[in-house]
Design a protein around this nucleic acid. Sequence first.
RNA 1: GGUCCGGUAGCUCAGCUGGAUAGAGCAACAGCCUUCUAAGCUGUGGGUCUUGAGUUCGAAUCUCAACCGGAUCACCA
Length: 597
Amino acid sequence: MNIHQQITSGIQKALDALYQIQVADSQIQLTKTKKEFEGHLTLVIFPFLKASKKGPEQTGDEIGKYLMENMPEIAGYNTIKGFLNLQIASNIWISLLNDIQSDKEYGTTKIENNAPLVMIEYSSPNTNKPLHLGHVRNNLLGYSLAEIKKATGNNVVKTNIVNDRGIHICKSMLAWEKWGEGITPENSGKKGDHLVGDFYVLFDKHYKSELAELQQKSMSKEEAEANSSLMAEAREMLRKWEAGDMKVVALWEMMNTWVYAGFDETYKQMGVNFDKIYYESQTYIDGKEQVQEGLQKGIFYEKEDKSVWADLTGEGLDHKLLLRGDGTSVYMTQDIGTARQRFNDYPINQMIYVVGNEQNYHFQVLSILLDKLGFDWGKDLVHFSYGMVELPEGKMKSREGTVVDADDLMAEMIQTAEETSRELGKLDDCSPEEAKKIVETIGLGALKYFILKVDPRKNMVFNPKESIDFNGNTGPFIQYTHARICSVLRKADEQKINIPEKISQTIPISEKEQNLVQLLSEFPQVVKDASNECSPALIANYIYDLVKEYNQFYHDFSILKETDNDKKLFRLMLSQNIAKAIRTGMGLLGIEVPERM
RNA sequence: GGUCCGGUAGCUCAGCUGGAUAGAGCAACAGCCUUCUAAGCUGUGGGUCUUGAGUUCGAAUCUCAACCGGAUCACCA
């Protein structure tokens, strides 16, 4: 039972005794006291004026007096306007800190044997181009959400659905055959995903000039598109692929292997991973079967051209295509098939799709379709919908070459971290290996924190030119504070100071120290909120508050020079636990925190 | 046009189950390295919380309307 709950129940008793009213927990507005006022927790007393039949000040004083007399936790109170500020006794904070100190799983919940299983799908790349900034946000959010779900007591399966089939893949394959036969990642020195992406671009280039040529021969744009020989070849390739043509499939497999090797490298650098990977080439057939079954059951209907549709007008939506007239599948078909396979493979309690908000409609439809098909989890699927990452000049557009590549971005961040560190002389005492590790941790920490601190639902702006600050509300600032705390603890250790398991409850502690303990005591709740609201940003902003507060504290005191031994121990223990909160919190964001930097 | 999401300082963002004088960082300016790491700290300036109504003791927060921006409504994925 935390301090908040204790006080709440005390207030309930007070209201009952004073005014004979019973009030539910939710009716009691107990918030953190604002900095300008004295106290820790503030009760809004306006709601009780009717019952007390007295003015705000008087009512507040009455409640405060009662609490003071009946609760040892309350050390003082004051009423300002309609707000009763309560002061919590010093020893309560110390005992809270003692609890945190001994809590081996501070901020996390143990995963029980019968814990629910949450499957989280994220990343979901296409195999025809490398990962870009949008994927970075997706990957970071997905990975972090998985960590947060684990920390709140869920079993988690991280999954990735690779979009490895369709006309777009054939474009890259065709371009390679025509203009790149023999080129491989090995002999070109290029990462496989980039190489394949280049051929995709090359196809587009040739396709465009073919269209221009045709249009010069007085064709309309539409006619030109219909008469393009390149596009016809690509479509023919797709047909052959679906028919299992050995040569096409072999080419497809070779190029996919290149791409996957490239992706693996990117994922590894980013620090994300998956427990199970699905491929659309292996799930779309399952989807077709599901749709056929639905058709037989009368859930869907067939048009004259044999295409299959779902009528969703009853749900306030449109008609939705599920199978083309030629029997080939569309996006939705594949997602149905993938969902079926997943639920066959795992006893999933909750399915979370981390997919951009441009697909809100798609998931609304998917949920309804799965429900109609009789999957009882369909209705409850969660679409973790996040906003786009925009550049200062607007959206990223591959045609205009304004796409920010994930590999380039990470490399640049690490390089900037290196330059900054060198300038500050931080790497002087490090071996090259140590320096490389530290610089990577900082560069990636800056990138990850920058992206995760923003509310996922919102579109966000990323300015590559200004890159990312290392000052202020940033990953490096938090990492730096952690490194400094570690340094204090190392020095304390050198001086043979042992931090005890428990601190005496009689030490007088300052207001700032009380604030810090209060913040620490709120951490577990923050993690739970982040889990419920699917928002790593809550944790990021909480950690920043904590670190900012600690830095201010740090400049007021020199811990190791404190002459009062008990106080010194208290401050060391406080610092130690703040470092623990930083490590845990940043860990949930997938951000490493170094011990020195 | 239908549906969904957003609009808070010059910029990037917090705050949103209604509560006190709306907060950080960046940028600008002024200070602080005999102090456990200055990637830090302190101070100054900067706001019609898009607008208008409503709900009430009280609205950035809830409701409605308008305006602006984005997404989506494909036999693309």
